[in-house]
Measured scan of single mutants.
Amino acid sequence: MDLSALRVEEVQNVINAMQKILECPICLELIKEPVSTKCDHIFCKFCMLKLLNQKKGPSQCPLCKNDITKRSLQESTRFSQLVEELLKIICAFQLDTGLEYANSYNFAKKENNSPEHLKDEVSIIQSMGYRNRAKRLLQSEPENPSLQETSLSVQLSNLGTVRTLRTKQRIQPQKTSVYIELGSDSSEDTVNKATYCSVGDQELLQITPQGTRDEISLDSAKKAACEFSETDVTNTEHHQPSNNDLNTTEKRAAERHPEKYQGSSVSNLHVEPCGTNTHASSLQHENSSLLLTKDRMNVEKAEFCNKSKQPGLARSQHNRWAGSKETCNDRRTPSTEKKVDLNADPLCERKEWNKQKLPCSENPRDTEDVPWITLNSSIQKVNEWFSRSDELLGSDDSHDGESESNAKVADVLDVLNEVDEYSGSSEKIDLLASDPHEALICKSERVHSKSVESNIEDKIFGKTYRKKASLPNLSHVTENLIIGAFVTEPQIIQERPLTNKLKRKRRPTSGL
């Protein structure tokens, strides 16, 4: 017993010596996670971090007073192994002897410093981030199933929210409404489509400006004509009531908005009720001829604005009016007729031209339509002016008669200019590109209106002035400009410049 007691005391002394060697000089306990400095002193990692955080910048070693920084600290694995072995020896000594260790306080702390507990403390002390800490805590505590279930439920809930957000973003663009038309193969669909197009076009005519009305009406008319041609002859009974509906809707729209509806009346003529396609083609032919005449008058307007600064050229074209007008009339009417003589009366030419125009518009179905009313009214106005011209010709002399006839021709041009508003800008460009020769010939008609105004002003003063002067240069210039014009009389060319000069002198006297 005595020997055993001596041996136990010796073992205890050895353990105490080893414990003092492996103590931390700051906390005076076994080193936890030993860290060595540049001066080869060993301290606990937790104690050194606490010391360095007390001051900004480098701190001093507690043993040798040298500078220490966080970067200079290094882990010493050898001392950590020695500490672990010492703890194992102490545990074995207690089991063999059955005696508690003399320094129970220190031993209890040593026992608490088992490797499992050290790992837990290291995970908390090290600044490795929240995710690494959570992982280490889960690994160190596998015995708690409640914690695992809560963490898994949190992760699953987070994943569910992310997935639901993604699915919502994908589903939202798919919620856009999609309209699908289910059509049938019955023959009544074509008639319904035609009526739908006509009503939609009328609404567009009321909303859209004048520049786009003609294009819309032309497209709708083409669509309706194609649909009529596709149907068989057996379905004509269905077409006639639908066309009557079209007429009623167009008349109502014309009564409500007459000014807006006139812009599309000329282009919509071939959508009118037709028994066969031949009647629609004839109407299209007549409309094309009318559009040609209207576009020519538009060309004359532009030329008149350009040549208004040259009064000499405008005056020299006075007698070329009849010849150029004959050529335009021959090209406007498709019928083959002989040219009228140069010395014939211009009023007779106008009456013949009106007689040619009237039969074209005397179809029984055309008179029933609303768009032809505008053309009939313009023709009636022309006839009224010609009836007035006959009365004026009986009273005035030959020279005054010529000037009045020219004035009436200008009035006719004004009437025809009203129809110019109905034609589109695209048709003007096509006419100029296809028929430049006709445009040059028809330019002379509009330029002549300037000389007509001068004659009217001469009649106000009650006299006409003449001068025997020749202007050969002007006649040559005008002959080169206009290709299809005829030779003019030299006496009238000489008379016109004198009248304008005298007018300039006598205007201030009349004002006084």
Rank of each mutant, 00 (worst) to 15 (best):
P34S: 01
T176W: 02
S114K: 15
R170W: 10
L99E: 10
P142L: 12
T164Y: 03
R7I: 13
P142R: 06
P145G: 10
E75V: 07
D2G: 09
Q174L: 09
Q172L: 04
T161A: 07
T167I: 03
E75Y: 00
I124F: 03
Y130R: 04
H117E: 10
L147K: 12
E84T: 15
T97Q: 02
I90A: 03
D67A: 05
L159R: 06
F93A: 02
N66M: 06
V122P: 06
T161H: 15
S127A: 06
P58G: 11
E23I: 05
M128G: 09
P142D: 13
D189I: 15
C47R: 01
N16A: 06
E121S: 10
T190D: 04
K135P: 11
E181L: 10
V154Y: 15
Q139E: 14
S127G: 08
V11W: 01
L182E: 12
Q74C: 12
I31C: 15
L138P: 03
P115V: 13
T164C: 09
N158T: 15
Q81L: 12
T69I: 04
K193M: 15
T176F: 14
N158S: 12
S72G: 12
Q60A: 00
E188R: 08
S242N: 13
K45C: 02
Q60Y: 14
K119S: 10
L118S: 09
G98A: 05
L52G: 05
E33Y: 08
K168F: 04
K70C: 02
L147I: 12
A134G: 09
E29V: 13
L28E: 02
L152K: 02
M48P: 01
S76P: 04
L165T: 14
A108V: 10
L156R: 06
P115F: 11
E75K: 15
G129P: 12
L156G: 06
S140H: 03
I31W: 02
F43E: 00
Q174E: 05
R71V: 01
V11A: 04
R163Y: 06
K45M: 14
Q74E: 08
V162I: 12
S72A: 13
M18V: 02
N132T: 05
Q81T: 10
A221V: 00
K50H: 15
N53T: 03
Q172C: 06
L95V: 15
S80P: 03
G98R: 04
E116P: 06
E181Y: 04
S140I: 03
D2Q: 11
C64G: 00
T164G: 10
I125T: 13
S123C: 08
I125G: 09
D120T: 09
Y101M: 01
T69W: 12
D40C: 01
R131P: 12
R78Y: 15
K65G: 14
V8W: 13
Y101Q: 04
V11L: 05
D185W: 04
I124W: 06
M128S: 06
D2W: 10
Y101P: 15
E141H: 11
Q54M: 06
S151A: 03
M18L: 11
R71W: 12
Q155T: 08
L182P: 07
I171E: 09
K88C: 08
F93L: 12
P34N: 05
N113L: 02
K32A: 11
R136S: 14
N113T: 07
S146A: 11
Y130T: 06
S4V: 02
S186W: 14
V83A: 13
I124A: 05
E33G: 02
E29Q: 08
G160F: 08
S140N: 08
C27G: 01
L156C: 15
L159T: 05
E149V: 09
Q139G: 08
Q60G: 07
Q169C: 14
L51V: 05
L152C: 14
K110W: 15
N113G: 07
E121L: 03
L52W: 03
E75A: 01
I42A: 02
S186A: 08
C61E: 00
G160S: 15
K110Q: 15
Q81C: 14
H41C: 01
R136N: 15
C39K: 00
L118K: 05
T212V: 06
I26Q: 01
Q139W: 07
S177G: 08
F107C: 02
E143I: 10
S186M: 13
P58D: 12
A17S: 15
E116D: 03
K55E: 09
K175I: 01
P115Q: 08
L3S: 12
E29L: 13
S114P: 12
P145K: 14
L118Y: 00
I42L: 10
N113V: 10
I171L: 09
A102H: 04
F93E: 00
V35M: 06
S104H: 15
P58M: 11
T37W: 01
T77Q: 14
L87G: 13
P173R: 07
T37V: 06
K251E: 14
N103S: 04
C27P: 00
L6M: 15
Y130Q: 14
A5L: 04
T77G: 10
Q139L: 13
E29D: 15
L22K: 01
F46V: 00
V162Y: 07
A134R: 11
A17Y: 02
M18F: 01
P209A: 15
I26N: 09
Q94Y: 05
M18S: 00
I31P: 15
Y130W: 12
L165N: 13
R166K: 07
N66E: 07
L30N: 00
T150Q: 12
V122S: 04
Q155F: 08
C27D: 00
D189L: 08
Q81W: 15
K175S: 10
E181F: 13
S104E: 03
I90Y: 13
T161Q: 12
N16L: 12
L28Q: 14
L28V: 11
V178G: 10
L99A: 08
K65M: 14
F107L: 03
G160V: 05
L51D: 01
L147M: 04
V191E: 06
I90L: 01
A108D: 09
T176M: 09
K175E: 03
Q126M: 04
Q155V: 06
A5F: 15
Q126T: 03
T97H: 00
Q172K: 04
G129E: 13
L137A: 14
A102R: 05
N53F: 14
L82V: 10
M128A: 06
E188G: 11
Q172I: 03
N66Q: 02
S177V: 05
Q81R: 14
V8P: 03
L182D: 07
T97R: 03
C44P: 00
T190G: 08
F107N: 11
K55V: 08
A134Q: 01
M18I: 04
S140R: 07
Y105A: 10
Q155M: 10
N106E: 10
L182Q: 14
Q139Y: 04
V154A: 07
Q126F: 08
G129F: 00
P25I: 02
G57E: 13
D2N: 06
N113E: 15
Q172R: 07
L6Q: 12
P145C: 03
L152E: 13
D2Y: 07
Y130V: 08
A5D: 03
N53H: 02
T167F: 07
V35S: 02
V178F: 10
L51S: 10
K45A: 09
S146D: 01
Q139D: 03
P25Q: 10
G129H: 03
S114R: 11
L99Q: 14
N66P: 00
G57Q: 03
L52E: 05
R163W: 11
H41S: 01
N106I: 02
R133Q: 08
Y105K: 02
E116T: 05
A108W: 02
P173G: 07
D120E: 09
S146G: 09
F79T: 01
N247F: 02
E188P: 12
E149N: 02
D40A: 12
L156E: 00
N106A: 11
A17T: 08
K38Q: 01
L152N: 13
I171M: 04
C44Q: 00
